[in-house]
Nucleic acid binder design. Structure first.
Lengths: 138, 138
DNA sequence: ATTTCTGCAAACGTTTTGCATGCCA
DNA sequence: TGGCATGCAAAACGTTTGCAGAAAT
């Protein structure tokens, strides 16, 4: 999804489009598969508008994007929020020692999907992470 | 495991046994399968000794219990720490709307175990949770 | 007696909120 | 213009830490 498509989705839902909001969408899209935290997102969006965007604005905008199904955020381990575009459909194995993450496609988690279905549990397939220690830190 | 057994394990590892530590063990044991957070644990342990135990003491004691393999803690969703006795070997499906949790025995997560093994990823089998929405909040 | 634990208070990092100003529609 | 979004600052939250006094060995 492009930033323009995100903005258009918001606009047609009656959401006001501002320079900061557009910049945050662009920063999120350009971050691709990277795992960006709120501070990084704020920094990149700020660079795009060549002005200071406050983290509170980023938090509010990410909430807004989540409400419209355009983004998700996840807590990898015991640290802060990681933001994601909604269509980045994969899971994470997050090492709590080094912070390294392994991305895992949905298809590899067959057993878990069954489990969720059996319990009628709507885990958003993006919105979770397994926290532990990667092979380097066993 | 009883609180006495926990205490004995600590003592024989050379750990000093204090009234607050014993109370925290007892509170943890008596919480059974419930998912207690740090504040609740502090409150219950405080009641047991009829004195105020500080949350910092609870944090330090939980760390200690984890070091000795007697407890684990996990972050369900976007909120604070949930503490667990170590032998409660199950996973959680945690609803981020109502806070309700479904406990799932290890045996039901075959696919995930394979996945972790394939990536040589040492997720402590207790130490993770799937966060989403239960069937009531779909 | 010595070591270590405790409570308190303060610091910390992340997230949220109140408010006056500024911007979008 | 009217209503909403923004930045800022301050508060809130969970967690950690430093320290002087208390307790365990």
């Amino acid at each position: 999804m492009t930033a323009d498509e995100m903005v258009e989705t918001l606009r047609s839902a009656g959401v006001r489009i501002t320079r900061p909001r557009r910049a945050i969408c662009e920063a999120l899209v350009s971050s691709g598969t990277e795992h960006v935290d709120i501070a990084t997102l704020a920094k990149r969006a700020s660079e795009l508008v060549d002005d200071h965007l406050d983290v509170s604005t980023v938090y509010r905008t990410v909430d807004l994007l989540e409400e419209h199904g355009l983004a998700h955020h996840v807590h990898l381990g015991h640290s802060g929020s990681i933001v994601h575009m909604a269509q980045e459909r994969h899971h994470h194995l997050a090492c709590e020692v080094c912070g390294r993450t392994v991305d895992v496609p949905l298809s590899e988690i067959g057993g878990l999907s069954d489990l969720l279905q059996r319990h009628q549990f709507g885990a958003d397939s993006v919105h979770f992470a397994v926290v532990g220690r990667c092979k380097v830190h066993e």
